[in-house]
Design a protein around this nucleic acid. Structure first.
Lengths: 212, 212
DNA sequence: TGTACATCAGTGAACGCGCGTTCACTGATGTAC
DNA sequence: TGTACATCAGTGAACGCGCGTTCACTGATGTAC
């Protein structure tokens, strides 16, 4: 990975190179592995050079996080495109919803480092300044859209629509967290798959059940 | 906190004192804050002394984790005892289940440091040697029991019983994780409460809905 | 009851680690004339 | 078209930090006789 060209001076694209390196570090070791020194090392540059492009470590990490979120969004979209267009409307909405849940889970289990980086908490304030609420991320918006579609298609009871993003997201997020770090860590693939299916089915069932 | 008695020599209870200190560190700063040096400092002892009682940092952390899990279990039990005994059987089982979910969430939000420490991943192997599967923790067993009760009381469809621990746990775990570190971090108390209720209701609805 | 001595549970100094960050600097670049 | 020079984007050395862990050690304890 380390490339030290003789004219590393005026690299030309150092910022992007550092972000890419940071994303690779994240992939292998999660957010903690994203350090100024490691990124500089990977690019073949002095740590100090990094400070030309990021004011501190946290900014580099946030840049890495953004690319991780973009990757997740891409995977979502690719997965959704696999759902046949000619399904009945209700079934299609439901299938897309479940597909996104599966993709989320697979992404997290395939790429735990990227996944953790997507959700690493930022050091304190700062974030508010840029006007973005944390849920203004592509994956979140995608999920909202899927839920809207389901309501429109009659696949979920409109009474359950409020906060459904939180309900759905919590479920898959919790599942992968428990599988990655928690008590389901040592489960074998078969059990894992069964739990995944049971869990997805349960959310969907809860959302589609009629309000009492 | 730091107490340096003149006869710190032969402390008498150093191991327990260190574990208590470790738990306090965990409470304030999560698992990362549990270090040999910090624990020794808190007890007023040399870092080296710690090695009389723990072979390395990881063992100290695991000891702290055990006390965190015990705390969670205690809170569960206390909460369950609040549920009136004279409720109809079905309703009682359901109420206890929901109460445990609420307690889990409140614990995590009240005590994020302890909560994170409960679920910090151990460094690699080792754990298997002591014969305990990670889910042999009191909280897990408690949850299993609650689910069994619900089946027995007719509150959930027996077809949904398999893997229901995973389903239920994932949901609340994901919810608090998103609230602690994720995109629900900056939600105000009101929204939070609404999402909590929506989420708990959804799991329960999913579990109790008839199998199709 | 008194004492010798093994053992036990600490001390204190030191090691090497990788980190974030700052400093004064210098080589490369591109622009104005 | 050539050159002076400002600016830009790097270098390299150094700082202080807290960490885990190891070493040779020593003071306190309790037990055997």
């Amino acid at each position: 990975v380390t490339v030290k060209s003789k004219s590393a001076y005026h690299h030309g694209d150092l910022r992007n190179a550092l972000v890419r390196a940071a994303a690779e570090l994240a992939e292998e070791g999660g957010p903690d592995a994203v350090t100024i020194r490691a990124a500089a090392r990977a690019v073949g540059v002095t740590p100090t050079a990094t400070y030309r492009h990021f004011t501190n470590r946290s900014q580099l990490l946030m840049a890495a996080r953004d690319t991780c979120l973009a990757t997740l969004a891409e995977r979502f979209i690719a997965r959704l495109e696999e759902v046949p267009e000619d399904l009945p409307r209700r079934e299609r909405a439901l299938t897309r919803f479940l597909a996104s849940g599966r993709e989320y889970i697979e992404f997290a289990l395939d790429e735990p480092g990227l996944y953790r980086t997507c959700f690493c908490a930022e050091p304190e304030i700062e974030e508010e300044d840029d006007g973005l609420m944390p849920q203004d991320t592509a994956p979140y918006l995608l999920l909202s859209g899927l839920l809207d579609d389901m309501v429109a298609a009659g696949a979920i009871d409109p009474a359950h629509r409020p906060h459904a993003e939180g309900v759905a997201w919590s479920t898959v997020h919790g599942l992968v967290t428990l599988m990655l770090d928690g008590p389901m860590r040592r489960m074998d693939a078969e059990d894992r798959a069964a739990v995944v299916e049971a869990t997805l089915a349960n959310v969907a069932r809860g959302l589609s059940a009629p309000a009492r």
